[in-house]
Simulated assay, not measured.
Amino acid sequence: METWERAGSVQWSLGDPFRTITVIDGEGTLELDGARHRFRTGDHVLLPAGSDPVQIHGRARRISCRTRKAGERKQ
């Protein structure tokens, strides 16, 4: 699990089977596969495998969780 607080834009690539994002506070847009999706406080987003790259624009505090790969141990 990761927690971020960002203003502006960020881009990253997923190396995971999927990732969930919970928006704790803020709003903005998430750009994925050429489509933009608005998000705001309280929203939950599921990013499927192969969702590269993902761009987030706006101001938000988020929690992100990912699945472990087969054979990966919990840290």
Rank of each mutant, 00 (worst) to 15 (best):
R61N: 00
T20P: 02
G50T: 06
L30F: 09
A35V: 13
V54L: 10
T41H: 02
E27K: 12
A35E: 15
E31D: 12
R66E: 03
L30C: 11
R59M: 11
E27W: 04
T29M: 14
L32Q: 04
F39W: 03
D52W: 07
T20G: 08
R66F: 02
F18N: 03
R40W: 07
A60R: 05
V45E: 07
I63Y: 01
I63P: 00
I21A: 06
V45P: 03
E27H: 12
S51R: 02
P53H: 12
L46V: 14
K74V: 11
A60G: 10
R38G: 11
A70G: 05
D43A: 12
R38I: 02
V23L: 06
D52F: 06
T67Y: 03
G34A: 11
T67L: 08
G42A: 05
H57M: 08
R59Y: 08
G28M: 09
R19A: 11
R40Q: 13
R40A: 14
T67S: 08
L46K: 13
V45N: 07
F18Y: 11
P17V: 00
R61A: 04
A35M: 11
V23P: 03
E27F: 05
R66S: 05
G58I: 00
T29D: 15
D33H: 15
A60T: 04
A60K: 01
H57F: 08
I56H: 02
G28D: 10
V45K: 07
E27L: 08
D33E: 10
T29W: 07
R68E: 04
T41F: 00
R61H: 04
K69F: 02
V54R: 06
I24N: 07
R19D: 09
P53V: 14
E31F: 12
G34L: 10
I21F: 02
A70N: 05
G26F: 06
G28E: 10
E72W: 00
Q55R: 15
T22W: 01
H37T: 14
S64P: 05
R66V: 04
D52C: 11
R61L: 03
L32G: 02
E27V: 05
R73F: 01
F18G: 00
E72H: 01
R19C: 09
R66G: 03
G34Y: 09
R62H: 05
I21V: 15
E27P: 05
P17Y: 01
P53C: 13
K74L: 11
T67Q: 06
G42E: 02
I63K: 02
D33P: 00
H44Y: 15
G34D: 09
A60I: 03
L46T: 13
S51G: 10
T29V: 14
E31Y: 10
L32N: 04
R73Y: 01
P17I: 00
R40P: 02
G50A: 07
L32P: 01
R61D: 00
L30Y: 05
S64C: 13
R66Q: 05
R36I: 06
R19V: 09
G50I: 00
I21R: 06
E72R: 01
R62L: 14
G50M: 05
T29C: 12
A35R: 15
I63T: 09
A49R: 12
H44R: 15
S51M: 11
D25L: 10
V45D: 07
H57N: 13
K69L: 08
D33M: 14
I63E: 06
D52P: 08
R59F: 08
K69P: 02
R38L: 10
C65Q: 12
R38H: 13
L47V: 12
D33K: 11
R59T: 15
